[in-house]
Design a protein around this nucleic acid. Sequence first.
DNA 1: AGGCAGGTGGCCA
DNA 2: TGGCCACCTGCC
Length: 292
Amino acid sequence: MTAVRWSDWQPLPGWAPTPALLAETIDGGQSFRWSRDDAGVWTGLWADCVAQLRLHDAALEWRAPLPLHARVAAALPRYLGAEQDWAALTDSLPWRSDAHLARCVEEFRGLRLLRQPFGDTLLGFLCSATKQIVQIKQMMALLAERHGMPLAGTPFRRLPTWTELATVPEAELRACQLGFRARYISETARFRAAHPGWLAATEAAPYPEAKARLLTLPGIGEKVADCVLLFGAGRLEAFPVDTWILKALERRYALDGWKPAALAQFGRAHYGPLAGYAQQFLFSWERAHGGR
DNA sequence: AGGCAGGTGGCCA
DNA sequence: TGGCCACCTGCC
């Protein structure tokens, strides 16, 4: 395999995250295809794009394999959420009346929500049930390596599309460490193949309808549906409630004894139309501070 | 070494 | 609605 020829590093204006904030955003559980090398350079893949990211003199820089340069240049800003004014969104969160949220925002100021491809996000979170991030990343790597198309002129492969997944036997999916999730992927792929346009229509639908549609798929419940809509469709009202958020709501808001459904309802009502963004701050803070 | 993990679906009262 | 359990399997 010949070495990749990368374009020159170039500035990516508009966002100057700390190394920790960059890691939290691209490798904190929103996406599962970024990895950092010993020199601190991140390499990531989404759709038919590959990019590298680095912090140089506190400025964010990027580059892409030469053959993909134009495509990545066009796609990267949107992927990294450049179309949103994150400072303004942060300011509209109810941190003024919520001391815990204020503390989370302070520690992770500048945190972003990725705007990933809908189909890739669906695949990633269909695999996420009771798995840790490292393991989900391994599943994605195996799926891409064994069933994804090569990205011409590079040694990288994209994730298989849903059309391609419909042709992969369930046993081969299981062999990618998917476990019982393989059946969900298989069934979803067959459903999608029988309903062309279903994914695009779901991505474009208003939040309540989009979520209802996702919930009809096997292996997709409340949490996964909200993750897909938040990280893969830019629906900032989507509020995924996982074990970390449950713990955060229960412990940081002194809601001991509340049942999970009640906690989730409290969160949605309390954080409002940007609940998903608030959720990301809570999630990052809770993970960073262990179970304490 | 063995429990547990960014859940979901099905079944029971 | 609420509670319980099976579902796969590789990390920490």
